[in-house]
């Protein structure tokens, strides 16, 4: 069963086309990694899934609900999809605890106690329970990103979107975030991840999508993507050789 279904999505900024006829899907429990050179439209594509980026053509269905339908209650839909951003985007004026509870209380209408319990549970899971009373500015980048993941999980999402979650991190902090993501994948979370971390893709992805110039160029099983390099398109091979050279 498809959790996220992207159907012929196209998007323009004025005359400039940023997404061209993108079609793919993410099944329940599947982990899909989206990669591609910068400017290929991968971040734009993942942001169309929870309507942070509007699109002009095609449709996206999340758990049976159309994202493009103007009648859809977008806040309600977004509350069911977790998202993790490149720059963490914790709310800097709120403590870690408040970051974890504010949406649970204000959006899901949970009681303070329930929100607190849930928030602390996930904060503990990402190993940061001791930081509960600090403010985002007092944490390292890796810690902030783990809190951001906990914030998303506390909403009990049906799927998680990751938009380059490690690319703003210092190299030594990348692994602490990837470890959390790997664990999440093993537990069966449905995940769509824009990332350059091919090690992560090899370890947990079911499928890999390669994008270039706003279009989906490759969309295949992980084993096929990494195992059968010769069958890949020219651009995907170039990209992989650059990435894997590191």
């Amino acid at each position: 069963m498809s959790m996220i279904e992207i159907k012929n999505v196209s998007k323009w900024y004025g005359d400039f086309q940023v997404l061209t006829d993108c079609t793919t899907d993410v099944k329940k429990g599947e982990v899909v990694v989206v990669c591609g050179p910068s400017g290929s439209g991968k971040s734009t594509l993942i942001k169309t899934v929870n309507a942070l980026e509007p699109f002009q053509k095609g449709d996206i269905i999340v758990d049976g609900i159309s994202v493009g339908d103007p009648k859809t209650d977008l806040p309600k839909l977004r509350a069911r999809i977790g998202m993790v951003f490149q720059n963490f985007e914790l709310f800097p004026h709120l403590s870690i605890t408040e970051n974890l509870t504010i949406a649970q209380q204000r959006v899901l209408g949970r009681s303070k106690d329930e929100a607190m319990q849930k928030g602390m549970h996930y904060l503990d899971r990402v190993g940061l329970k001791a930081q509960a009373n600090k403010f985002p500015g007092q944490l390292s980048g890796g810690q902030q990103q783990r809190v951001a993941i906990a914030r998303a999980l506390a909403m009990d999402p049906i799927a998680m979107l990751f938009d380059e979650p490690t690319s703003a991190l210092d190299p030594e902090m990348v692994n602490e975030v990837l470890d959390v993501m790997v664990e999440l994948a093993h537990e069966g979370m449905t995940m769509m991840c824009v990332t350059h971390e091919m090690g992560f893709a090899r370890k947990v992805a079911n499928r890999v999508i390669f994008m270039d110039r706003g279009a989906i160029v490759e969309d295949c099983e992980k084993e096929e993507f990494f195992g059968n390099i010769d069958a890949r398109s020219e651009r995907a091979r170039q990209f992989l050789s650059k990435i894997l050279a590191h």
């Binding site: 942001k47 929870n50 942070l52 977008l74 806040p75 309600k76 839909l77 977004r78 509350a79 069911r80 999809i81 977790g82 998202m83 951003f85 490149q86 720059n87 985007e89 914790l90 709310f91 504010i102 949406a103 204000r106 959006v107 899901l108 914030r151 998303a152 909403m155």
Partner: peptide, 18 residues
Amino acid sequence: ISKGQINAAYAVGMTYSQ
């Protein structure tokens, strides 16, 4: 305030007014 903040607020399901 960076655009990411409003995106993050929307992403956790907040309405415009929230």
